[in-house]
């Protein structure tokens, strides 16, 4: 109850003040399974992107937050590799994680009919199970093995937002964005026939916005949403990272905001094909909101 009150307070403050605040997914709860598995939750994290490891793995690091830190130990429960390669992770206030499937080196271990299925890692048991399967008019296949790509858990309303590109090909976008209610296990489409990758809800100068990145270009969009994340405005192109960075053709995979008005974009090389094992072509762009010009300005490319 107290936790809910605090969250409401944050949202109230965000919506009715002119201050920038961090995005609305910063409520990750501590999962009990970590302790049960003998891992220190303060030093541990789950990952789907460890080289030579399929599925989900838990790692304990001696310097949490530092990707180059020494890994003290790691483990993988049997259900964590059952579903093949996995991708985006988002975690709720109870420590349950919602994990999306991925298409990586090959499709031997990922059934195409599950590419639009959200998996839930139960905070208590640590079991990874199928949670919700979103509909697909056209199954992923040779022309596009991907389904779900991006996810975001909105702590203010306990809703999950996910993007999928299932069924899209080079000629037609068939992507969708869904709001998923993890408690009622219901879902609703808010965008269709548009391929989006990364997602983030952000309170910006008193209004709530959903930011979405294109899976087909370096474009970043935003749309004003209501408290239940339903769009109430038109989709607006904020800017593009086309031509910028080491490669110049990255897509924005993950959108995150800081409390100081910065937007951090994690980027990746993505052309709707699988990747060879060593191809870690990723980038990180930092933008700063310019209050006077009311534009995002590029600060740093890494």
């Amino acid at each position: 109850m107290k936790e809910r009150f605090i969250r409401f307070g944050i949202l109230f403050f965000s919506l009715f003040s002119n201050h920038l605040v961090a995005q609305l997914d910063q409520c990750k709860g501590v999962p009990i399974y970590m302790t049960k598995m003998g891992f220190n939750p303060e030093q541990s994290y789950i990952s789907t992107s460890e080289r030579n490891v399929m599925g989900l793995v838990i790692m304990q690091s001696d310097q949490p937050g530092n990707p180059r830190a020494k890994i003290i130990k790691s483990a993988q429960a049997p259900s964590w590799k059952k579903w093949g390669y996995l991708g985006a992770i988002t975690t709720d206030e109870h420590g349950n994680s919602y994990i999306l499937p991925a298409a990586k080196v090959n499709m031997l271990y990922n059934k195409v009919e599950y590419q639009n299925t959200i998996y839930k890692l139960d905070a208590m048991s640590g079991e990874l199970q199928q949670f919700i399967s979103l509909p697909m008019e056209i199954k992923p296949g040779a022309k596009n093995p991907f389904g779900l790509l991006g996810s975001f858990y909105d702590c203010s309303n306990h809703l999950l937002i996910v993007s999928t590109v299932a069924g899209s090909d080079e000629k037609k976008e068939r992507g969708k964005v869904y709001i998923v209610d993890p408690i009622k296990k219901t879902y609703k489409v808010i965008f269709e026939n548009k391929d989006f990758y990364g997602l983030a809800v952000h309170v910006h100068e008193g209004k709530k916005f959903l930011f979405l990145s294109s899976a087909r270009s370096g474009d970043l969009y935003s749309v004003e949403v209501d408290q239940m994340n339903q769009p109430i405005g038109n989709l607006k192109k904020e800017f593009s990272i086309n031509g910028i960075g080491l490669r110049g053709d990255d897509r924005i995979r993950k959108i995150r905001f800081t409390g100081t008005g910065q937007m951090i974009l994690n980027t990746v090389l993505f052309y709707y094909n699988l990747t060879a094992p060593s191809e870690e072509q990723v980038g990180r762009f930092t933008y700063q909101w310019n209050k006077e010009k009311k534009t995002w300005e590029l600060l740093k490319v890494e």
Partner: peptide, 11 residues
């Protein structure tokens, strides 16, 4: 797998 550089199941 080998094949088209975009929209494919080639790596």
């Amino acid at each position: 797998a080998i094949g088209c550089p975009e929209f494919s199941t080639a790596a």
